[in-house]
Amino acid sequence: MPTYKVTTANLALSQKQKSQIASAITTAHHSQTGAPGFLAQVFFSSTDGGDHFIGGSVNVKSHIFVSGLIRQGRSADIKQKLMDTILRQVSLIAGISVEDIWIYLQEIPSVQMIEFGRFLPAPGEEEEWKRGLSPEKQADLANANVFL
């Protein structure tokens, strides 16, 4: 955890842009919350023309929606800084106005999440939790070159 879903409407992102956005979201989450980057996941999807409506009318303009599920326990200030950082980075990478990017964060208690086969720790307890991962999983994460 966190899990972010980036959905585009009337906009095709290149693989390079997707990689840059995923990296920017992971870095923003890590730097603002202190959570290890290896917990971050970013999924991309896009809507077909005519599948996105605003106010009951078909939207024909480019938009990006970022929905994030994060562990409960961060201050409003941290969450707003996180969202603002993501907003600015996604705008820069995708080349669209901040007014065309919508971001939503939802919090889930850590006791309601399982990753790597284990319930997640409370924020700030990741190091002890990480030590409980198998040596093979720790090696996988180290080889993936993610924040440890």
Score class of each variant (00 low, 15 high):
34 G>R: 02
142 A>F: 11
141 L>W: 10
36 P>H: 12
91 S>L: 08
109 P>D: 11
49 G>E: 14
48 D>C: 09
33 T>D: 01
146 V>M: 10
21 I>V: 12
37 G>S: 10
123 P>L: 07
14 S>L: 10
63 H>C: 12
115 E>P: 02
109 P>I: 15
21 I>N: 00
148 L>A: 09
124 G>W: 06
123 P>I: 11
124 G>K: 03
73 G>N: 06
107 E>N: 05
75 S>D: 07
130 K>R: 15
21 I>M: 08
125 E>P: 00
35 A>I: 06
81 K>Q: 12
38 F>H: 13
86 I>H: 09
79 K>S: 05
42 V>P: 05
112 Q>H: 15
110 S>A: 10
103 I>M: 09
120 L>Q: 09
47 T>L: 14
132 G>D: 12
114 I>H: 05
110 S>C: 15
69 L>R: 13
127 E>P: 00
91 S>V: 02
100 D>K: 15
49 G>T: 14
19 S>W: 08
77 D>E: 15
12 A>N: 09
82 L>S: 06
78 I>C: 00
129 W>V: 04
11 L>V: 10
103 I>N: 03
135 P>V: 03
27 T>C: 09
77 D>L: 07
1 M>P: 03
111 V>R: 00
136 E>H: 14
61 K>C: 05
98 V>C: 10
10 N>Q: 04
23 S>W: 04
13 L>G: 06
82 L>E: 06
5 K>V: 11
122 A>G: 02
146 V>N: 07
120 L>Y: 01
68 G>E: 03
19 S>Y: 11
92 L>H: 14
60 V>M: 07
97 S>G: 08
83 M>D: 04
76 A>M: 07
129 W>S: 14
27 T>I: 02
94 A>H: 06
95 G>N: 09
24 A>T: 04
53 F>G: 04
115 E>W: 12
15 Q>G: 03
91 S>I: 02
98 V>A: 05
19 S>P: 05
33 T>C: 02
30 H>P: 02
96 I>Q: 04
95 G>A: 04
32 Q>Y: 03
81 K>T: 00
61 K>E: 13
139 A>V: 08
